[in-house]
């Protein structure tokens, strides 16, 4: 039964693939839970930071920080946060699409663009297509740490301070739920003042040592924490997307196996029938 053997081999190979995709699905599921926890854990810091910066914007400081001043955009900086690895459906593709659309929009306004990529996929995508990448970070792993981001973010902040870029955006995937991830492009600099709080009375902090030093340090950390949040959120998205993609792959493998099994059974039955009819006709001839 030559045909039967071939089909059986194919079924076995698909079964092996299915084992891999199923394992990847389960790994992604458990990693996703951890990534979600991390996402939640990083939120209080960013919230507190936002509160303090909000206070600052309303506190009439004697020193107005450059990060809070709007200026004409001649050059744009974008921090693109992607995953390090593939096999996660259309996650990175959708994000890059949003980024490229934004880039095109600014490009048409004759604004030049500096890119900063975090994650392998963004790095290879944008360097292959010839964007001006000024800083790069990759291989952050499953437990990204602020320390891994300080350098990359600083390059962009320095560029902003020195006037080489006039606006800084960050692009990452927003975690809506396990099934939905939405690409998101957000403005980091200049910082938009929250206008919801009313100015009740004029007050200001006491700064130690100097307002400038304190604000420099604070705003730098604020931006870093926002980028970090983007990284953790993107990580949760990556795992969720991978889980869904691998589940789909496992299901597909299942249907393929069923179909092949049917073909195999038919072929086997046909072979048996043929054998019997040969024996019967052979016996009749004697």
């Amino acid at each position: 039964m030559a045909v039967g053997k071939e089909i059986r081999g194919k079924i076995n190979s698909i079964k092996n693939t299915q084992k891999i995709t199923r394992a990847m699905e389960m790994v992604a599921a458990s990693k996703m839970r951890k990534a979600q926890d991390r996402m939640r854990a990083s939120r209080p810091y960013a919230d507190k930071m936002r509160n303090v910066v909000g206070h600052l914007a309303n506190a009439h400081p004697e020193y107005r920080h450059g990060y809070m001043q709007e200026r004409e955009v001649k050059r744009l900086g974008i921090i693109v946060i992607s995953s390090d690895r593939g096999l996660c459906g259309g996650l990175n593709t959708n994000l890059f699409k949003a980024v490229v659309a934004t880039m095109k929009e600014w490009h048409d306004k004759r604004v030049e663009i500096d890119l900063c990529t975090i994650g392998n996929k963004a790095g290879t995508f944008f360097s292959r297509l010839g964007g001006n990448i000024v800083a790069q970070a990759a291989h952050l792993g499953d437990r990204p740490q602020i320390a891994d981001l300080i350098g990359t973010v600083k390059v962009m902040l320095d560029a902003y301070e020195e006037g080489r870029i006039d606006r800084l955006l960050v692009a990452y995937n927003e975690f809506v739920n396990t099934m939905t991830q939405r690409p998101r492009v957000e403005q980091l600099l200049p910082i938009k003042a929250t206008e919801e709080e009313e100015l009740k009375h004029h007050w200001d902090y006491i700064y130690e040592p100097e307002a400038k030093d304190v604000l420099d340090a604070l705003l730098m950390r604020y931006i870093e924490s926002l980028v970090y949040q983007g990284v953790v959120e993107n990580l949760a998205c990556e795992q969720a997307a991978r889980m869904v993609a691998m589940k789909a792959a496992s299901d597909n493998a299942g249907t393929l196996i069923e179909e092949l099994q049917l073909i195999y059974n038919k072929a086997r039955q046909a072979a048996i029938t043929q054998e019997i009819s040969e024996i019967v006709s052979g016996a009749a001839a004697v």
Partner: peptide
Amino acid sequence: AAIEAKERAERALADKTSEFE
């Protein structure tokens, strides 16, 4: 750390001046 990040970018980018396609 900033210098390292820049270097990584430069290493990855063979021709730096090319226009984004």
